[in-house]
Simulated scan of single mutants.
Amino acid sequence: MSTRISTAGQPFQAAPQHAWFRRLMAWARGNLFPTPFDAALNLVIVALFAWLVASMLPWALLDATWSGGSRADCTGTGACWAFVLSRLDQFIYGFYPAAERWRVNLAGTVLILGLAALLIRAVPGKRVTGLLMLLVYPPFAFWLLKGGFLGLTGVQTDRWGGLMLTLVVGVSGIVLSFPIGVALALGRRSDLPVFHGLSVLFIELWRGLPMVTVLFMAIVMLPYFLPAGMKLDSLGLAIAGIVMFQSACLAEIVKGGLQAVPKGQYEAAKALGFGYWRTSVYIVLPQAIRIVIPGLVNNSIALLKDTTLVMVVGLFDLLNIVAAGSSDPRWLGSATEGYIFVGLVFWTLCFAMSRYSHRLEHSLRSRRQRLGGVS
């Protein structure tokens, strides 16, 4: 090992060569091969994964066809990704007019920037950003996408579709169901019989119905109870049904967090002179929400995947529009590539939500440990 002289005139030892390799081997011994059984099991898993990759790689990439105007152009033995690439605009925007797609791009860009400002710790002003995203962004995005006033061309919701529609339904369901679910959870734990009874009735009624039934009730049955000639928007009805169903499920998750808050927190707030609402908003709910973060994220992931159920009521979400595209006579036999594309899109969105949840849990646990709390 060589010795060099520092700028201060003091000798120091050079960093050991290949230290990263030794750290990697130490990690592998501790995590992958701690026992002979674990080593054998991990080697079998690695071998199966390598075999799977070797079997899929030629079909997915090496022998795939990437361009063409119909299935007949896919003459190779691999995947026909030309189907996905040729209809990618439709998969993203649905039937939204091409000349107006800048509005979709602008709404999506604002959403991404707003979420980045909320999720990146170094960005200041999270309270203001959160209020803007909750109170200002929804009407702004609706005006931008729907149009029909302030100079924008009107685009009816039956022309919305693809990934755009999936995100509209998913984000609307997540954002709108959260405050309703919290209110229902507080009502279920209320000592007032009226609030408690109505909350329990709402939760048990909606939570006991399948999502498909809720959508059919909203789209098919509800118009029969409306005045003659009155027609409601199908997308709005579907979102309303999803919000009612998810808020009932979310209420049970938040209720578990409320029950996990120690009773001493309530007593301390009462001793400080806090009333019910101040205790709930400033003391109880922040602790309860931290406790149920995994459940909230799991509920959001389930909601995002359940958006595909809107296809049964005639809305062309990402899954439905890919299925419709694969039924085109020019692309018969391309359903496999289309469904793989849908699966990758949903996996990416759900994985990103899951990783952020894990990071947030780790950050909160580290903060409690630094403050001397119990992790």
Results as ranks from 00 to 15, higher is better:
R4I: 10
T7V: 12
G9Y: 07
G9M: 11
Q10V: 14
Q13C: 07
A14K: 05
Q17K: 13
H18I: 03
A19V: 05
A19L: 13
R22V: 06
L24S: 06
A26L: 13
W27P: 03
R29N: 13
G30C: 03
F33A: 13
F37H: 07
A39K: 04
A40F: 11
L41K: 12
A47S: 13
A47E: 00
F49S: 08
A50T: 09
L52Q: 14
V53I: 15
S55M: 11
M56D: 04
L61E: 04
T65F: 06
W66V: 04
S67K: 11
S67F: 11
S70I: 07
S70G: 09
R71D: 02
A72G: 01
G76K: 07
G76D: 08
C80H: 02
R87Q: 13
F91M: 15
I92V: 15
F95Y: 10
A98M: 08
A99V: 12
A107M: 07
L111P: 00
I112H: 02
G114Y: 08
A116H: 01
L118D: 04
A122G: 00
R127H: 06
R127I: 12
T129E: 07
G130Y: 01
L131T: 11
L132S: 09
L134I: 08
L135N: 02
W143R: 02
G147W: 02
G148T: 04
G151V: 09
L152S: 07
W160C: 02
G161K: 02
T166R: 01
V168C: 05
G170W: 09
V171W: 14
V175Q: 13
V175T: 13
L176Q: 14
S177K: 04
G181W: 08
A183M: 07
G187Y: 06
R188T: 11
F195D: 03
H196N: 15
G197H: 08
G197A: 13
V200K: 14
L205W: 13
T213R: 01
F216Q: 10
M217V: 12
A218T: 05
V220Y: 09
P223T: 08
A228S: 14
G229T: 05
G229R: 05
K231R: 15
K231G: 01
L235P: 01
L235Y: 04
G236E: 06
A238M: 08
I242G: 05
F245G: 01
Q246V: 08
L250T: 09
K255R: 15
Q259Y: 12
V261P: 00
K263P: 00
Q265E: 14
A271M: 10
L272C: 12
F274W: 03
P286C: 06
Q287P: 02
A288M: 04
V292Y: 02
I293D: 03
P294M: 02
L296C: 10
L303P: 03
T307C: 10
L315I: 07
D317E: 15
D317Q: 14
L319V: 11
L319R: 05
L319F: 08
A324E: 11
W331M: 09
T336D: 13
T336W: 15
I340V: 15
I340D: 04
L344T: 04
L349K: 00
C350K: 00
C350P: 01
F351H: 12
F351A: 10
S354D: 14
S357G: 15
H358V: 12
R359W: 10
L364S: 04
S366K: 11
R367L: 13
Q369W: 02
R370A: 12
L371C: 08
G372S: 03
